[in-house]
Simulated assay, not measured.
Amino acid sequence: MSMLAELVEVVIGVDTHKHTHTAAVLDARTGAVQDRATVDADPDGYAQLLSLAERRSGLRAWAIEGTGGYGAGLARHLADAGELVVELDRPKRPARRAGAKSDPIDAERAARDALARTRLAQPKTGPERAALQMRLTARRAAVEAAAIAQQQLHAMVITAPETVRARFRGQNTPAMITTATRLRPTTASGDVEVTTALAVLRDLARRIRALQAEATGHETAIRAIVRSWRPDLLALTGVGPIVAATVLTAWSHPGRCRNDAAFAMLAGTAPIPASSGKTVRYRLNRSGDRQLNRALHTVALSRPRYDERTRAYADRRRTQGKTDREIKRCLKRYITRELYRRLETPPQPLDAA
Rank of each mutant, 00 (worst) to 15 (best):
E83H: 08
A95F: 14
A107Q: 00
G99R: 06
A130N: 12
R90K: 13
D80L: 14
G82S: 12
A75R: 05
R119E: 04
G126Q: 03
R76E: 15
D80M: 13
R135D: 08
R112T: 01
E108G: 06
D89P: 00
A110H: 01
K124A: 13
R109N: 05
P91A: 15
M134Q: 15
R129E: 08
L136V: 11
R117Y: 01
A79S: 13
R119Y: 00
H77R: 12
D103N: 10
A116W: 00
D103R: 06
A130Y: 06
A81I: 12
V86D: 01
A130L: 12
A121M: 05
A131E: 06
A121W: 01
P104T: 10
A114Y: 02
A110G: 04
P104G: 09
D103M: 07
K101P: 04
A121S: 09
A110P: 03
R119S: 08
A75F: 05
T118S: 14
Q122H: 08
R117C: 01
Q133A: 15
Q122R: 12
A116P: 00
A110I: 03
P94F: 11
A79T: 12
E128S: 13
Q122F: 00
L136P: 01
G126N: 03
L84I: 09
I105C: 06
Q122I: 04
G126V: 00
Q133D: 14
R97Q: 11
A116K: 05
E108P: 03
R97H: 13
A95D: 10
I105Q: 06
A98M: 12
H77N: 11
A95S: 11
D106T: 07
A107G: 05
A121Y: 00
L78V: 07
Q133T: 12
L84Q: 05
P104Q: 10
A114T: 04
A79V: 10
K101T: 09
A114R: 02
P127K: 15
P123I: 03
A114S: 04
V86Y: 03
V86H: 02
G126A: 08
P94D: 10
A107R: 02
D113M: 00
V86K: 03
A79P: 02
L132E: 03
P127A: 15
R90L: 11
R76Q: 15
K92H: 15
A81M: 12
V85H: 00
H77I: 09
A100C: 13
R135M: 14
D113Y: 04
R112H: 09
A107V: 02
R117V: 01
H77C: 12
H77T: 10
A95Q: 12
A100P: 09
A130G: 07
A114L: 02
A130H: 09
R96V: 09
A111I: 01
G126S: 08
P104M: 08
A100T: 14
E128I: 06
A107P: 01
D89E: 14
A131G: 09
T125N: 07
M134W: 13
A131M: 11
A100G: 15
